[in-house]
Design a protein around this nucleic acid. Structure first.
Lengths: 264, 264
DNA sequence: GAGTGGTCTAGACCACTGT
DNA sequence: CAGTGGTCTAGACCACTCC
């Protein structure tokens, strides 16, 4: 890395690691740093771009640049899917107690907001293909932003899709005022006679688009982890599809594969 | 996005999608584009930074900027783990036939290179913790770069760690000239009496560091998907840990969770 | 050598925040 | 208002590729 901005980033990275710049503290102003490193503002800011993308730096316009305290990652594992399914058959009082996000975070239901937005869209080709319906068919789209109440660290943005004509059989399912629904999506499907057989997670990573960075309060340059979660019922039909978006620097997914024993 | 560079990126994105700029083709030179958009070079290049991070643009110094043809993602699923385990007990002739990378790609063994590098390191705290050994203990580190021969599209960079004193029981296991080993790591462990019970994948996304972007021929700004794969043997001991690094814009991971049926 | 992208500078002005 | 980060410009020079 012969470029100046790379060397400055290396130096600042070292200063953060050795404690010269303390986590949570404000860095010297950019004009001071240009004097320290004897570079132009432009070059200095390119160095900060790198640190920001690495999640080590947080920039706040009008205030200053801050060393970012490492945040413990939110863990997510597919164990939740079985847990959600088991919960469906429990009495409502039990189902009320906790939602799936608490399962990840250990937080209680009171600590979370669930601002759910329902609307309908015409199925774009990729979704129509997965659901096995014609492109343009009506889909119910539900958008959830789940975050810790009070904290400024949102967890995830979820876009859930259902085939409208299938779920409208129970009018309560297309009514967003019924959120949060005790027992979640699997219980909602249960009310129209659907039992899930398996869930397939397709995981990719990409830069945030449009408002996503804003919605998730992500720093620019941080990657988004996207889980496209496809739920199949016991007749092998795709009944729900969710895109779960999470900031890559605060999320760890965990999947366990149990292996069969060799014959003795 | 009131900023000029954002509007320019929007415009160029549209031109790529509508075919004004054709995939694989060279864009007008940057100096021409500055004239077209009436902005400074600096601003234009910030717009191109965005497109590059989105994987839509490829920059080649001294040649030009190119619209990047979308590449089909490489799929990876944990089905391979059971497949690898089943293969261990097969005769060598059978094990020779294919490796795990072909399992992902459908390519034959002839189409792949496996330049393996072996060395030993002192266990850093995080690895020592996972293996349950003292920090500073000797680990065997094996580095693999697997890529399609001839093509310039590498697939993944793998760093595999084993406890040196455990695997040195079979001297062949610490000798890189024995690569590629028919039957892979699970067969290597089999030679010292180890059978795997389960494998846990920890998935995160982060920007590439150091030489990683270069090694994987990644465009700057593209996120790296990292799988930390931890293998447990039948006595619940961690016997191997691999970090598998893949370019986020060319990789899709797939995990299926089978759910138990409700009682009838 | 001509043409391309990569880096860097000095200076200007704007937008946001807190006093 | 002063201080901070965010954007933009015009111009210079360097590094790489191809002829």
């Amino acid at each position: 890395m012969a470029a100046k901005y790379g060397r400055i980033a290396d130096d600042m990275r070292r200063k953060i690691e050795t404690g010269t710049f303390v986590a949570g503290e404000k860095l010297p102003a950019e004009t001071e740093l240009t004097a320290l490193y004897r570079v132009s503002l432009n070059t200095l800011r390119r160095a900060m771009d790198l640190l920001e993308a690495e999640g080590r730096l947080e920039r706040r316009q009008g205030i200053g640049n801050f060393v970012r305290a490492p945040r413990p990652p939110i863990r997510r594992s597919p164990d939740r899917y079985q847990w959600e399914k088991d919960r469906v058959l429990q009495p409502e009082a039990e189902r009320m107690k906790t939602g799936a996000t608490e399962y990840d975070t250990g937080l209680t239901i009171d600590a979370l907001e669930f601002p759910a937005v329902y609307d309908t869209i015409e199925a774009p080709p990729d979704l129509a293909d997965v659901f096995g319906v014609d492109a343009g068919s009506r889909l119910l789209r539900r958008t959830y932003r789940t975050r810790m109440r009070g904290a400024d660290s949102p967890l995830q943005l979820i876009r859930s899709y259902l085939v409208y004509d299938v779920v409208a059989e129970n009018p309560a399912l297309v009514d967003s005022s019924r959120e949060p629904w005790p027992g979640g999506t699997q219980h909602q499907l249960y009310t129209i006679g659907i039992e899930l057989d398996r869930i397939v997670d397709h995981i990719t990573a990409r830069p945030p688009q449009g408002d996503e960075a804003e919605d998730l309060r992500m720093l620019p340059g941080v990657a988004l982890i996207v889980i496209r979660k496809v739920s199949y019922d016991t007749t092998d039909r795709v009944v729900e599809l969710s895109d779960v978006l999470m900031p890559g620097d605060r999320t760890e997914l965990e999947y366990t594969t149990k292996l069969r024993r060799w014959p003795a």
